[in-house]
Design a protein around this nucleic acid. Structure first.
Lengths: 337, 337
DNA sequence: GGCAGGAATGACAGCGCTGTCAATTTGCTA
DNA sequence: TAGCAAATTGACAGCGCTGTCATTCCTGCC
């Protein structure tokens, strides 16, 4: 029925253990033997039984991707990360499981423990905002589970992948400055997200570099949601002297800003320039299309998983790598009148 | 270290096999014994080792969710389905894996075979358009892998979940008719999707019921994408006598229609009513917000998985269940001038 | 009170692989 | 060419559970 390792061994005229060595890329197998075994595997279309491997070898060949489906940075973003992680896992013949987990829930740690006890993943990929949830990181270390992060806030010895969000934010604000804007507002994202801090920092850096003193009334708190963008924009557009441009910390909020502009009878970009961050599919479907920053999310998922798998293969090899961003200049920004 | 079934057996003073019986809810265990074993499991926080279970029991406790990340009905839709499937799997202590697979790829079946051979899922959940990809269905049957479908086109003996899309489409067109519209256009979705056919059928049914003969020029082909919506609308809005309302087969295309209306200097809904289907988050973020049909996607994912798991537990119990839709009347539709 | 027949429980092997350690072969050096 | 260390290969047990089948324990009934 099913082809087993033993069958391959018989066909290649070696012991099962030697086939196992070839399967796991272990050392101390002559090239000739290795070839012979590989050929037999190929010929018989041998597929190792993952459960048997994991039972005997005490490893699961499983990577768990954790996300918070409550405080969650858009499902599109997560879907892309997930595709990337999956791609990397596939390439290394690992399997992947996904796991929504809510920071706000009281039993977060209990649920996390259950995940580990039930499935024994060899490693974990963290997505924002879980990347910086201290109780989780603590528990991961206690239970000695390797992990890699996508866009972590704190970049200590963490492995994973980041983008220079501050530089990206600065670049987009520089773009507004180049168009002649001076009264540029910023809508901040959820407070505990690294993304919010970096983007704010980039905004400040650009403004400072242009010699424009910060006006506290132009920097308002949002929460990464469309509704929070609307609320923030209403606050900004009710000011005695309105901003001529708004940089929202993500596309959903920028969309909210555009909506609110409509309420105030303002045309984008003629009366108000708006830009966002993330390049969600939505941003291209708006009218006008949104000027924003593109993050290579899928690639970031892939690279984070790649680092994790590297670390699993040989301890100490995992890094925190950085990927480049790109500005998407579209119709929602224009020169001041 | 780890608590094993054997340890529980010793604590409860029964044989390992009896613990196994309790674990698997098998018959022929006295209630007293069952309680005692349960208590011991609880007290020791026993977690069965999934690999050992699956190796010995010849089942994987794994459900694979398949999707086409190429011809794909929006990532938000899929993310919701996925969350639903996951919820059901969790409740039944199954694990879930996700698998993108492209119908367009030449090696679709090879990849599918690899998935089955590598991971041995006990069952599979299919999402559109894979629900109706004949070669896949054929192979599933050949390999004797149980599956459940979300919104399958052909509803034979399939298990899974559907919504009465035709009724929903009819309802939304009835809404337009009630507003006084007579020249109502329809933008069709991708040809091989069941969704496209039902929605078109619903449109026709409503128009016929209102006694309005079909005008072929008012029914144009789209492809579920924003761009295709724009193209379709340009075609419609260039007609000598324009439609006063457009029903697009999904929200993305409806968004495209709204964009194109802008190009033609038409205001929505004053000059043109637009409605979609799906209730994507996008639909609420537009301005005006889109009148559309809400599908309970998450719930549909959960129910499809529920049917599959029921079928796995006892063969023949799986059904094709139907969920209700709800109309979301918002700002993009209004009475004819 | 004895016995048939079904319910409850247990003994034991083995699922397909890998870890450990022993046996064998190879490649050097003297 | 013997002798030794290192490289290569293999034998065997066992990972934690469940399937099969044997055994024991109850019932109810004549």
């Amino acid at each position: 029925m099913r082809v087993r390792l033993e069958d391959v061994a018989r066909a290649a005229n070696v012991s099962p253990k030697t086939v196992s060595r070839v399967l796991n890329d272990e050392a101390n197998v002559t090239e000739a033997t290795r070839q012979r075994v590989r050929a037999a595997m190929e010929a018989m279309d041998y597929r190792p039984h993952p459960s048997a491997r994991s039972l005997a070898g005490n490893r699961s060949f499983l990577v768990a991707m954790l996300y918070d489906n409550n405080d969650n940075p858009s499902s599109t973003y997560l879907a892309e990360i997930q595709d990337g992680v999956l791609e990397a896992c596939d390439a290394h013949r690992y399997s992947m499981m996904v796991r929504p987990l809510r920071m706000r829930d009281g039993d977060f740690i209990r649920r996390f423990d259950a995940l580990i006890s039930d499935h024994h993943p060899d490693g974990v990929v963290l997505t924002p905002p879980l990347t910086d949830y201290a109780p989780l990181l603590k528990r991961l270390r206690e239970r000695n589970v390797p992990y890699a992060s996508v866009s972590p806030l704190r970049k200590g010895k963490t492995l994973g992948v980041t983008m220079d969000e501050q530089q990206a934010a600065r670049a987009i604000v520089d773009h507004l400055l180049a168009l002649g804007h001076r009264r540029i507002a910023h809508v901040i994202g959820i407070a505990n997200h690294g993304a919010s801090r970096w983007r704010l920092a980039g905004y400040r850096e650009a403004m400072a570099a242009a010699g424009i003193p910060e006006e506290p009334e132009l920097v308002v708190q949002g929460a990464f949601t469309f509704a929070s963008g609307v609320a923030a924009a209403r606050q900004l557009l009710s000011l005695p002297t309105r901003p001529t441009a708004v940089f929202a910390a993500n596309d959903d909020m920028a969309t909210g800003v555009m909506w609110a502009a409509g309420e105030y009878g303002l045309k984008v970009p003629q009366d108000l320039s708006v830009c966002g961050f993330d390049d969600t599919p939505l941003s291209r479907q708006l009218w006008p299309a949104l000027t924003t920053v593109q993050q290579p999310s899928r690639e970031m998922g892939r690279m984070a998983a790649e680092q994790l798998l590297g670390e699993l293969r040989n301890h100490g090899s995992g890094r925190l790598v950085q990927v480049p961003f790109s500005l998407q200049i579209r119709g929602s920004t224009a020169a001041v009148p």
